[in-house]
Structure formats: C-alpha cells, structure tokens
Design a binder for these strands. Structure first.
Lengths: 209, 209
DNA sequence: CCATCCTTGTTGTAAATACAACTGTATTAT
DNA sequence: ATAATACAGTTGTATTTACAACAAGGATGG
C-alpha cells in the first residue's frame, strides 16, 4: 500500500497514520474487470474511490446512446468524491472499469467524521484541482471545430507532460467521446494535421511539431 | 451584511462569528462597474470573491478573440476559489463585472489559517457542488447539435427552478458563448423550436412545453 | 494457427454550423 | 426628444461535421 503514500489525499501522513485512517473510514479494496460498472448513474453514492492500479472512467450515456467520457482516471486518482459530497439521488454519471483495476472504496461520511485537519484540507485541494481540470476541459469543448478542440487538448497534455512527445490514455473512440465529436471525423482531422506537418502520431503516442 | 447569513461558506455561523472571520481573513468590499475586470487571466490570485450584489462572469478569451463564458455568478456565489487554491501563475480565466456589482474579496491563505472546522467543511461542499455544476455543463457541451445543447441546458434550468417557466441570466450572445455556439445559429434554432411548439420564450424568459 | 473481434483510417453524402451582412426593435445616453 | 448603441432575429453561402458503410491491420482467444 505504499502507493497511497504518494496519494494527494494522504499527503503529509505517515504509513501508520494512513492505515489507521483507512480502518476508521472502513476502506475496502475491490478488483474490477474491464467494462464492469463500479458506480451506476442512478444510485445515491455513499462512497468514493481511489484507483490503486489499472484505470477507470467517468462516463455519461445519454438517451440516444451517445457516450461522453468525462475523464479516464489512473493510479492514485480519486473518483466520485464530488458526487458523494453532493448527496444527489441521481448523478447521471457511471464509473466504469477501463483496464483491470484495483480500487480502494471509502465511505465519505466516515471520512468527514475523522478528526484530521490535514485530510480535510487535502481533500479540499483535490476538489480545487478537479475544478481547474474541468474548467480546462470546458475550454476544449467550447472550441468551434474538431481541429481546435483537438489541438487545445493536445497542447495542454504537452504542457502537463512538459514535453511535446507524450502518450494519451485514450484510444480513438475514447478520445472522440472525451472531446464530444464523431470518431471518424476525428480520425480524418488527425490525418489532415499529420499531412500538414502539425503533428505526428501513432496509436496513442503523439508528437507536436 | 445579512446577505452573508445565507451564504454557503458561512452556513452554521452567527452574524458575530461571520464578522469575526471576515476581520481575520482581511475581507474587503469593492464595487465594480459593467465590463470592469476583477481578476485578470495572467495573475497568480491570492484572493477569491463573494458576489454581494449585481453579477460577474467567469470568461475565457482565446487567441482568435472567441469568448467562452464559464458561468454568470450572482448574489452569494463564490468565484476564483478553485484557482486561488491551485496556486497557478496563469489561470487563463478572467472575472469580469457583468452588472454593477458589490464584491467581498477574501485572502484564501488567511482563510486556511483560521481554526474553524465548519468554514473549511463548507468550502469543501462549495467546491464539490461547483464540480457537479461543471460536470453538468460538460454534458451540454458534449452534445452534438445546438438543439441538444440548448435543450439539455434549459431542462436543467427548469429542474433547478422547479418550474418549466424561468428566467436565465444570459442574453443571446452570452448564452451562445456559454454553450460554445454561434449566436445567429442559436437564434435560428430557438425560432425553430418555438415554431415546433417545444418551447416559448421572450428575451431571457423561457417556458418549456 | 486460424477465426473472430477490435481498432483505425477512408470516403461519400446529407445535415448542421459558422460566418457575414442586414433589418428592425429596444435600450441608453445626451 | 433624438441620436447612438446594443440586442435579437433572418437569410444565404461556404465550411464543417455526423453518420454510415467499408477495408486493412492488429490483437486476442481458443
């Protein structure tokens, strides 16, 4: 469980403290397989999760079967915390396993009860940076063309990776659902950008030129 | 300042407590006029704000002069809190006065220092519900057509107002910039929906049928 | 090793959108 | 009261996109 030492939620705590906290909040570890639903969109959630290995994704499926991917969540990322705090009966969002995942599930009410200022403050910081992420993503989505959506997303990724060469966690269909566009239109836009010498890519490896 | 008694941040505190807190965090009140910039996109912000009267908006202007409106913030809403916590040098977001506004500005570092569990917990809840709002908004933006973006936004507003008749805080250009679409295309889509008997509207008053 | 499934790119077409230009009507300022 | 400005709707056109159908590799599983 040394992974958790690097987790934002437990920043500043010792391994002993972390173990104590996890006991107090009734943390349990579960394993999920690809496409298994971890949280359904119609439940009032009492828990949030931490990805220990593998990956999961936040997904919204609308009436017409369109899928929107909010984000793919990888090692040490949290999911469901905002919705569990909000106490909504119906979130509209599913959490689905994307790649064989080990997940730590935590009861949020118990977390609020524990008397550890550091944890609460850490949680606040996590919520704040998720806010910043969502705001960033809205900037991509607000762009008027697929090309602009794609380039603003990719240049943000380059920034995050501090390199113009990087891997993204999405395949084509997932990237299309993440950016809210049609897959084939995205593919052809990618080909066009490659032909123009603006970028290079192979599968989920990208290079901005 | 009884407005603040209804504010989410001070929920559960008495008026005396609130006054004490505001002193501790060096809260100052400022007045802004329409189109005045309250927070510029290139500064590292040390403060966040509470709208006491009037309204402000979170705005992103891109390289080509396209404006994206994140949200119009009205009485008792907070702005800038996520970005001030995140400590970014460059947020890319401006806060601009939308309608003659009185604003309470608070130093976020001082807020973190004060020893009041309730305030920190309230702030966490505020961040969580902003998260939920942003997630909702992503659902609108991910829709493939103007019609769907519009209808998902309007039906959410109807839900929030618990009525199929309601006012929105946006004029046409602002609504277009909020939904990331062209104003004239939005206008003609609205007319079409009115002709189809799906909705009725007059200026910023809407009725879902 | 073969069959099946999954992923990605391609193409054509119909539909939707952005953009620009213009009109009429409120709203504001002088 | 009048001019100036802001706002909302309309229309036409060029561009962009969604959608559907298909083909070529790759990966996967028995």
């Amino acid at each position: 469980m040394e992974i958790l030492l690097k987790n934002e939620l437990f920043k500043g705590l010792s391994l002993d403290d972390i173990n104590k906290v996890i006991e107090e909040v009734e943390g349990i570890i579960k394993i999920f397989h690809k496409n298994e639903v971890i949280i359904t969109p119609k439940e009032k959630i009492k828990v949030f999760g931490i990805v220990l290995s593998g990956s999961v994704m936040g997904v919204h499926n609308d009436y017409w079967g369109h899928r929107t991917i909010l984000k793919i969540l990888e090692e040490n990322e949290l999911f469901g915390e905002a919705f569990s705090f909000s106490q909504l009966d119906n979130t509209g969002i599913s959490i689905v396993c994307n790649k064989e995942a080990k997940v730590l599930l935590i009861n949020f009410e118990k977390l609020l009860e524990i008397d550890n200022r550091k944890i609460i403050q850490n949680m606040m910081m996590i919520l704040a940076s998720k806010n910043v992420f969502l705001t960033r993503k809205m900037e991509y989505l607000s762009k008027r063309s697929i090309k602009d959506k794609l380039l603003s997303y990719l240049s943000d990724e380059a920034m995050n990776n501090k390199s113009n060469k990087f891997y993204i966690p999405y395949n084509r269909q997932e990237l299309a659902d993440f950016l809210g566009v049609d897959r084939s239109a995205l593919s052809s836009e990618l080909s066009k950008l490659k032909a123009e010498g603006i970028l290079n890519f192979n599968k989920n490896y990208f290079e901005l030129l």
